[in-house]
Write a protein that binds this DNA or RNA. Structure first.
Lengths: 336, 336
DNA sequence: TAAAATTCCCAAAACGTTTTGGGAAATATC
DNA sequence: GATATTTCCCAAAACGTTTTGGGAATTTTA
């Protein structure tokens, strides 16, 4: 049986009110008393019962992250880094992180409903935002605070982090051109994903600025897994005229593409250029090391947490949008 | 304001007791009434307030997982798969998963204390168990249920999953020998980690059975990250007589080792054999694809959850130990 | 028909906090 | 010396459930 506030009060012959207020730092308790309370509370190993506090305060000091059901496979290091970043910042603020992964689209919906209705979290962090995202609409209507990595086109205003990669994408394409690669292809993800929409736009725009054509057939769609990338690249590289510069929507996809390229006998970096997006740590150790556009995943997670917490603690808008520019990391996979 | 049980009761002119019992499936409420209650509760979007229920029931329906502080970098796909497995099984049982990552050894200790004292979780799942593990001692003494992946040598009995890899390790070594590799080295992790102890033992025993010597200098210790593996391999491969068969304590380490091998001009699979352990999905897409001993990470996580829940719900011992044998997955990195 | 058993429901207590609205003692002000 | 102010503390209510211990109808049994 853990010690309760009653135990502490009894031992000191004080009321539970005083103990509570002493620990919470109210100024209507004598310094001497406060010292005593804090000491004995520590000595007795007292920690407030979370459920009782939540019930009384009507907040949970917990925020929720539900892994989107598109990422069924869940083998993406991106999420590990992201979740880790969330956890870091949250624990610094004495908040907890409740995670769950949705088994299906329907299951995902249920999870959100349950967590909202049963008051389980004070707010949500969204990831893999879609063009029209029911989560955004649902949460906005429910009134629960939330922030997102990416902004949906639903006309709803919410604090978010946005990646601005147009400029750096142009630099990437120019760099690849300098190494005499010219037949570009884009290995993308689901079409309604914000990151897909944006990254594909940057790709197209960069090619255009370099005076290159991009045929529709050179833009393929995957589920953004390594296997998805592998399969897409296999078909792409089996055609008569094959592309020689494969730009991927994320690093994960690029891993599969690398595999396929090797299997088809290409020498990546000389015969062919391959690049990713995200800058996962693992990308440094691929063979050859992968050129990629690095996003400071942990920082992004930190920022999202900070935005969410300030939204929770007050209604003040603070920063509505944080813009982050990726970093071009040139490695051997594009000729170095 | 979410709807409470009072709202439902008032709308139906029933007592909250009856509503509560109807929803909980007690048999002292008329079928007709129950139907009505369930219907209107659904229609009103009622979900029991978690905090209130927890407070009254004295359980949280939440289990905790704290990422060990050794894995600071947190970029290991192993954990993503593992956490995902935990989440899957838990949500199936209507439990939640609270995660946190410890910033330091001290921070880790504090987290456990806080979660235990404030009654935040009904149980813990341990990972990266050490030979002498304070977590095991602390939790056992606190009386909170817990299970672990691996068993510490503290003489404390707790339900756990154990990997039994001696036999399959021998098969791995034999396979590598058949491809004419003979100078073995082991790229391991911290010395007091159970997985390091076990895997190193299997390594040594397999070599012995094949009539091979293993010099002490051919066993190196890393932090089990890709970078750790990279650095260890770099020193190893800079020596006068270099090993030609590098067996790694896990896949993550092997990724770095692969990188180092390529950098030193070796052709992995012909000049040199490299193998991992864990069977991460990503290992299929390395160059060359990595030979590894596969562990069904999701299954392991499921089993751990089941053991923990049965421990929580009753004191019955059920299964005290589940033994799992890795699967030998031969790929090109050891000559195919 | 009376007693016993069953069916269906409910009022009140409890879980462990925080917050409200004072109130007694000590100190300061006139 | 009397009043006003400050200092320090506390009893009780509240948060939204679940559980306890009946109790009033209704049905069955004798």
């Amino acid at each position: 049986m853990p010690t309760t506030i009653h135990d502490v009060a009894k031992k000191l012959n004080l009321s539970i009110t005083t103990v509570s207020r002493a620990l919470d730092g109210y100024d209507d308790v004598a310094d001497q008393t406060r010292q005593l309370v804090i000491e004995t509370a520590n000595k007795m190993g007292y920690a407030p019962n979370r459920a009782a506090r939540q019930l009384r305060r009507q907040k949970t000091d917990t925020i929720g992250f539900i892994l989107p059901s598109i990422a069924q496979r869940f083998d993406e290091p991106f999420f590990t880094e992201f979740i880790s970043g969330l956890g870091e910042e949250l624990s610094r603020k004495n908040f907890d992180l409740l995670v769950s992964n949705a088994p299906s689209a329907e299951g995902e919906r249920n999870l959100y409903h349950r967590w909202v209705n049963s008051h389980k979290v004070d707010g949500f962090i969204l990831n893999r935002v879609r063009r029209h995202d029911w989560r955004v609409n649902y949460l906005a209507q429910s009134g629960l605070p939330f922030v997102g990595l990416g902004k949906s086109h639903d006309g709803i205003d919410y604090p978010h982090v946005r990646i601005e990669g147009a400029e750096v994408y142009l630099r990437l394409v120019k760099h690849i051109r300098e190494h005499r690669f010219s037949r570009f292809a884009f290995i993308g993800g689901p079409n309604d994903l914000i990151i897909q929409i944006e990254r594909l736009r940057w790709f197209k725009s960069a090619l255009q600025k370099c005076g290159l054509e991009v045929g529709q057939y050179n833009i393929v769609s995957t589920d953004m897994s390594s296997t998805g990338g592998y399969e897409a690249a296999c078909t792409l590289l089996s055609g008569a005229t094959t592309p020689d510069a494969l730009l991927c929507v994320n690093d994960q996809t690029a891993y599969g593409v690398l595999h396929a390229a090797h299997e088809h006998g290409f020498s990546v970096g000389t015969d062919m250029a391959i690049a990713g997006f995200d800058g996962l740590r693992a990308s440094y150790h691929t063979q050859p090391p992968l050129t990629t556009l690095g996003i400071p995943v942990s920082d992004v997670a930190h920022q999202l947490v900070l935005m969410l917490l300030s939204k929770i603690n007050s209604q003040l808008p603070e920063a509505r949008e944080i813009v982050i520019k990726p970093e071009l990391r040139i490695r051997a996979s594009t000729g170095g």
